[in-house]
Amino acid sequence: MSGRLLVLSLLVLLAAAPAAAQTLEVGVSPVEIATEIGDEHALDVSIVNRGSQPTGPLVAHLVVIDPSGGGSADAEDWTGELNRPLSSLEAGESINLDWDIKPIMRGDFIALITVAPADRSPIDPASSPAVYFAVTQPTLLVSGATVPVSIAVPLIILAFGWWLLRIERKRVAALAGFGSSAS
């Protein structure tokens, strides 16, 4: 009985023990963005070295996930800078990045900034909290006047061309009439 109690106590202690502290801590703000296709937003990304040693060179990478799995979310289309090389962070040092991101598709998406060592230094990669994007279709993308204008403009120009042609024909006919009467 006492043996069982000992095992149970150990399990409880293990479960209660804090996980090993991660060297890199990545924060991001804001974490919820409701926007329209094509609108650009700047994510404020902070990266902190919580360890006691320099990190070595790092690289930050933007990941875009489509949780529905219905479409392809290619992060390259969402930002001009998919990867951001970073110099080494000293112990306790932090760096802030502005990451411009422009949704190009309608739907709900999750964006993450993942930071990993650029060399083979033994530091675990770390990711930011998820940024939830709710992207809607701009209502003004197609003006109601597009189709009427697209029909009317060529017709107006054709009518103008036809009118010029008639004037020219009348002018030529008048000249021909003048020439024949003179002869």
Partner: peptide, 30 residues
């Protein structure tokens, strides 16, 4: 004038195609 009408028709086709492409989220308005 006939060339101008052809140019206008080209713009018309492009404008309508862009509108419908935008509905499919392939291009944005700008």
């Amino acid at each position: 004038p006939w060339l101008a009408a052809v140019v206008a028709l080209t713009f018309s086709g492009t404008a309508i195609a862009l509108g419908y492409s935008s509905q499919l989220n392939l291009l944005d308005a700008r």
